Measured scan of single mutants.
Amino acid sequence: MDETGKELVLALYDYQEKSPREVTMKKGDILTLLNSTNKDWWKVEVKITVNGKTYERQGFVPAAYVKKL
């Protein structure tokens, strides 16, 4: 869990989004888990830094590609 009590997951593999509802992740990324009720796709939040500014983006990743921490 992070400092706000949200559950975290670890990306076990790289994943490139294939639709606007998904998010890209790299092996080793730590993501915030938002919803894991679907056994195949989990909703996560990723933080992306571009030119020194951090953005948060929500989307789905394959559940088999992440592990709860």
Rank of each mutant, 00 (worst) to 15 (best):
G5N: 12
F60H: 05
D40M: 14
A64M: 12
L12T: 04
V61W: 00
E3F: 05
S36H: 10
W41Y: 07
E7G: 11
L33N: 01
M1C: 14
N51G: 13
Y65E: 02
I48D: 07
N38A: 07
V46A: 13
D40G: 08
G28I: 00
Y13I: 08
L12K: 05
E22M: 05
V50C: 10
T49G: 06
D14L: 02
A11N: 01
K67M: 12
M1A: 14
L31Q: 01
N51C: 12
E3M: 08
T4F: 14
V50T: 10
E7M: 13
A63V: 05
M25C: 05
L34P: 00
N51M: 11
K68T: 07
A11R: 01
G5D: 11
E56L: 15
L34D: 01
D14I: 02
L33V: 06
K47R: 14
E7T: 14
W42T: 03
K53N: 14
D29R: 03
V23G: 02
V44L: 03
Y13V: 11
E7Q: 14
T32E: 09
T49R: 10
V50D: 09
K27D: 02
K67R: 15
L34R: 04
K6S: 10
L69K: 04
Q16F: 14
R57C: 05
R21F: 13
S36E: 15
G59P: 00
E17F: 06
I30P: 01
K53H: 15
K27F: 04
V61C: 04
I48W: 11
Q16W: 13
M1L: 13
K39T: 11
V44Q: 00
Y15V: 01
D2M: 08
W42I: 04
L10Y: 10
N38G: 10
K18A: 10
S36V: 06
G52N: 09
Y15L: 01
L12E: 03
A63M: 04
K53C: 12
V46W: 05
G28P: 00
T49N: 11
Y15P: 01
W41I: 03
M1Y: 09
D14E: 05
S36C: 09
P62Y: 02
G59T: 01
Q16Y: 15
K67Q: 14
K18D: 05
K67Y: 08
L8F: 15
P62C: 03
S19A: 08
Y15D: 00
G59N: 00
V46P: 02
R21L: 14
S36P: 05
L31C: 07
E7A: 09
A64D: 09
L31F: 07
K6C: 11
P20R: 09
E56G: 14
A64H: 13
E56V: 15
W42L: 04
A63K: 06
V23N: 02
K18W: 03
Y55G: 09
W42Q: 00
T54A: 12
G28D: 05
Y55N: 07
K6M: 11
V9I: 07
K68P: 09
Y13H: 10
K6R: 14
R57V: 07
G28H: 05
V46G: 08
Y15Q: 01
N35E: 15
K67I: 14
E7V: 15
D29C: 05
V66A: 02
G5H: 14
D2Y: 03
A11Q: 01
N51H: 10
M1V: 15
S19H: 14
V61D: 00
E7C: 13
N35C: 09
I30T: 06
Y13W: 12
S19W: 05
D40Q: 13
V61S: 00
T4H: 14
Y65I: 06
E45G: 13
S36L: 04
D2H: 11
K18M: 12
V50M: 13
K53T: 13
L12R: 04
I30K: 05
P62K: 03
G59F: 04
P62W: 03
L8N: 05
T37Q: 13
A63G: 04
T4S: 15
V9E: 00
G52F: 08
T54V: 14
Y13T: 07
D2E: 14
D40W: 15
T24M: 04
K43Y: 15
E7H: 13
T49F: 12
F60T: 03
K68G: 04
I48M: 09
D2R: 05
K6H: 13
A64C: 13
D14R: 03
T49M: 13
L69M: 10
D29F: 03
P62Q: 02
D29I: 02
E22C: 06
K26R: 11
V61M: 01
Y65H: 05
G5I: 14
A64P: 08
G52A: 06
G28L: 02
Y65N: 05
E22N: 04
E45Y: 07
L33F: 03
V44Y: 00
G52S: 07
I30L: 08
E3S: 11
W42S: 02
L10I: 15
Y55D: 06
M1S: 14
V66F: 05
K68C: 08
L69S: 03
N35P: 03
P62D: 01
R21I: 13
E3Y: 04
T54G: 07
S36T: 10
I48N: 07
T24Y: 03
P62V: 01
V46C: 09
A11M: 02
V23R: 01
D40C: 11
I48K: 08
K47F: 11
T54E: 11
A63E: 03
G59S: 01
P62G: 01
L33Y: 01
S36I: 05
V23I: 15
G52E: 07
Q16L: 11
W41K: 02
E56T: 15
K43Q: 13
K47M: 12
P62S: 02
A11Y: 02
P20E: 11
N35T: 06
E56D: 13
L31M: 14
K26P: 00
V66Y: 01
L8K: 13
K6T: 12
Q58W: 08
I30W: 04
S36W: 08
Y55S: 09
E45F: 05
T32M: 10
N38S: 11
Y13A: 10
V23Q: 02
A11E: 01
Y13P: 00
V61E: 00
V9Q: 00
E3H: 09
V66P: 00
V44D: 00
V44C: 04
L33C: 06
K27I: 05
V61F: 00
W42Y: 07
N51W: 07
R21T: 12
W42P: 01
D14M: 03
W42H: 02
K43W: 13
R21N: 14
D40E: 12
E22L: 04
K53F: 14
A64L: 11
L31G: 06
K39Y: 08
K6Q: 12
A63I: 03
Q16I: 14
T49A: 09
G59W: 02
E7I: 15
R21S: 13
Q58V: 10
A63R: 10
A63P: 04
F60Q: 03
V44K: 00
V66C: 12
W41H: 03
V66L: 15
K53R: 11
K67N: 05
T54W: 11
K67L: 13
K67V: 15
E22S: 05
D2Q: 10
Y15G: 01
E56K: 15
W42N: 01
K67W: 08
L69A: 04
G28E: 02
L34I: 14
A11I: 02
V9G: 10
G5Q: 14
L33E: 00
K68A: 07
E56Y: 15
